[in-house]
Amino acid sequence: MKKLNKFFLMLFASSLFLASCSSDDSSPNVSLGQYDNGMFVVNEGNSTVTTSSITFISNSGAVEQDVFRNVNPGAAGLGTYLQPMFFDNTRAFIISGSANKITVVNRYTFEFIATISTNLENPRYGAVANGKAYVTNAGDWMTGADDFLTVINLSDYSTSKATIGVWSEKIIEENNKLYIANGYAYGDATSITVFNPVTNNVETTIQLGFNPNSFEEENGILYVLGSEKLAKINLATNAVVGTPITISAGAKNLNIEDNKIYYTVDTAVYAMAINATVAPSTPLLTYQSQSQDGRMYGFAVNDGKIYIADGGDFASDSKAYIYSTTGSLLRTITVGVGPNGFYFN
């Protein structure tokens, strides 16, 4: 309460990271801010306000905990039950389920810009399209019929609502269309909603036959993972291509990197060629977890590395692990409470 947030800075040997520094940055020589070169880990926290935080891991290996409070000691807290962050070119958007609001910060300096708190009711995930941000809302948890999008004007942060009417969870933008998974943590619908941000209407609904939990687009194909199925949707026709591949139960966290599909089952990471027709039977790697719920709570594959966040007990600081794509452990990093994802700057 009264305590000032201490600035935790842990410096590690940087040699591991220097060799694999990201080469994606469009202007690698000009720093856009303190947090330009590295990644954020969102620690969702629990019902206690101080448990939510953002951890920054720089490409050189330095770790800074609780970035938002360090940079903005006077700003209102982020809220807890933080959802995955999303970005536009200059800004990061941090959704809090408990506070029912979105905090906008500069994605490179993490300076506070604005709070959005209108037309939200249990916000879930967000994406940017057509100069606006779109955030899915669960509304009343008991039903999907009232699920809607909050449409945010990014010049003045004014908002409006667009009805979806079916469970709306993860959302991504591709080719100026928005794709919404009709279920994940909430909802058991078996489809994907296609939303046109220009007309501000649902364009079509693609039936999957299973409940989607994660998806990613690659070369005009939307790859959609459910607990036991992986389907491909041709976005030119919005039709499912062929028959979905059967996967072991509990599959989640679909990621596509370098023409490979990665996903997780319990504590194991599996990888398969993007055009494979059969799921692999042996995992690429397995990690140790004491967590009863938070196994593979956050997962990403980026630039030849696999990132795993373990949810731990959701009441104390937990761990993130970085592996090579060949499955060797490169580093273990202490992060915050309930880490749920990695976001690369």
């Binding site: 309460m1 305590k3 206690t48 101080t50 448990t51 009441a315 600081d317």
Partner: peptide
């Protein structure tokens, strides 16, 4: 303590 690992940084005074 408010944290199960007894991290005293987050204690309630």
């Amino acid at each position: 303590f408010t944290r199960s690992d007894n991290n005293s940084r987050y204690n309630i005074d």
